[in-house]
């Protein structure tokens, strides 16, 4: 049996190809759901900004449905929403994504997953992508989410929580830390 090809870092020079124009604009004015802006940052173990990171996002639409043939949940695909985003970090390690808040998605068994966005982090010095999730602080269903429940250390669950902007509603702050005392929880998928 063949085995998955060996991963490699994206290196520092992927920008001519991978970050599409408007890759961080996942939703348009016609997209159903609550528009949100994610203001993200990527930091290394010493809290230095990572200025050559690439972030990919994958999420369900406002009805909790993925635009994919294996999502056989009831509900409709929103033709204006693929659910995929891809954006490069800037000189300050910051990135901006405009999307809509995803709906809850079925989990395994009879469980339900709270609204969340799948996140992949690529960068120079990251040999294999890092996988995490973004949840919304205070969001409905977080306390029963089966994936958050896998994280035994409750304090570490906080690392997956996007925080609402205190001044402007619809804006969410999300920081990824690739190491250090406040290291983000990463998953083995």
């Amino acid at each position: 049996m063949p085995i998955e090809s060996g991963w490699a870092t994206v290196g520092p020079f992927f920008h001519a190809v991978l970050p599409w124009k408007d890759g961080g604009v996942m939703a348009g004015p016609e997209t159903k759901g609550e528009p949100i802006t994610i203001l993200g940052r990527v930091l290394d173990a010493e809290e230095n900004p990572i200025n050559d990171a690439l972030i990919e996002l994958w999420q369900a639409n406002a009805g909790g449905k993925y635009n994919h043939p294996e999502d056989t949940q009831s509900g409709e695909i929103d033709p204006s929403f693929q659910g995929f985003g891809r954006v490069a970090a800037d000189a300050e390690g910051s990135f901006t994504v405009k999307t809509i808040k995803p709906g809850p998605v079925r989990g395994l068994g009879n469980s339900w997953q709270a609204p969340h966005i799948q996140i992949s982090v690529f960068a120079r010095g990251v040999l294999k992508r890092l996988v995490t999730r973004l949840y919304f602080e205070g969001g409905p269903g977080n306390e029963h989410d089966p994936v958050l429940a896998l994280i035994e250390d409750e304090e570490r669950r906080e690392t997956l929580m996007a925080k609402p902007d205190p001044k402007e509603s619809g804006r969410w702050h999300f920081t990824l830390r690739l190491g250090g005392p406040r290291e983000t929880v990463f998953f083995d998928v």
Partner: peptide, 12 residues
């Protein structure tokens, strides 16, 4: 060195 998580990944 500064870009590698040190805590075990959580199997999802």
């Amino acid at each position: 060195v500064l870009r590698s998580p040190r805590k075990p990944l959580i199997a999802l």
